[in-house]
């Protein structure tokens, strides 16, 4: 994704290397950020936060521990969560409902939806649900990791994911979708 020499130059604070790294990685980072933030200003602010963090901590990047892409992806997700928490936007319901495991909605139950419809649903999804959904399904964090990241228990994370699925299903029920998919069960 990016040459080691560019990383070395970034460690030294070379502005041209910063520029090169930005131009190379920004499109990828933007794909992550745009899922967490909808307003343009928020996306721009998040991009700046993420790159500031990347430039400041690039000396900590260790190739032996993983690829540069996964490293910046992790930083991006962490920064997005930090911004959301800082702005108090991440309102996750901490109520732990006692739900019988067999009643949990599963991810497979959404597969009747078209991918593009699900993408559209994500835009309107409440931020708390969306964050967990993205972290779990798209960024593939475990519930334990999500719990640590958001300061909640793994059980709460799991419960929030199933609420998110429930939300998608309840919001997909309109006349057109009933005709297209039937009522999702």
């Amino acid at each position: 994704m990016i040459a080691n020499s560019t990383i070395s130059q970034c460690v030294k604070g070379d502005q041209q290397a910063y520029s090169l790294l930005y131009c190379t990685c920004a499109p990828y980072i933007f794909t992550i950020i745009k899922n967490y933030f909808t307003p343009e200003d928020d996306r721009k602010d998040a991009m700046q936060e993420v790159f500031a963090q990347i430039f400041l901590s690039i000396q900590n990047f260790d190739e032996a521990k993983g690829s540069f892409k996964s490293w910046i992806s992790k930083i991006t997700v962490y920064q997005c969560i930090a911004i959301l928490r800082k702005k108090d936007k991440l309102q996750i319901s901490y109520h732990l409902e006692v739900v019988e495991e067999e009643n949990y909605d599963t991810l497979e139950s959404l597969e009747k939806l078209s991918v593009s419809d699900l993408e559209k649903m994500l835009v309107d999804m409440p931020l708390g649900y969306k964050t967990i959904f993205l972290l779990s399904v798209i960024d593939e964090y475990s519930h334990k990791e999500i719990g640590e990241l958001l300061g909640i228990s793994p059980e709460t994370s799991r419960s929030q994911l199933f609420r998110a699925i429930k939300w998608i299903k309840s919001n997909i029920i309109n006349d057109i979708n009933i005709m297209r998919y039937g009522i999702l069960q």
């Binding site: 930005y22 933007f30 794909t31 992550i32 721009k44 700046q48 991918v115 798209i138």
Partner: peptide, 28 residues
């Protein structure tokens, strides 16, 4: 779904390095 969400598009024009660099350095 992941591939769709991670599909790289062109950056918006106001997110070019020239537009963003000042803000990045300020945040640093």
């Amino acid at each position: 779904l992941r591939d769709n969400l991670r599909k790289e598009d062109d950056l918006p024009s106001d997110m070019s390095w020239e537009e963003m660099s000042d803000g990045i350095f300020q945040k640093m």
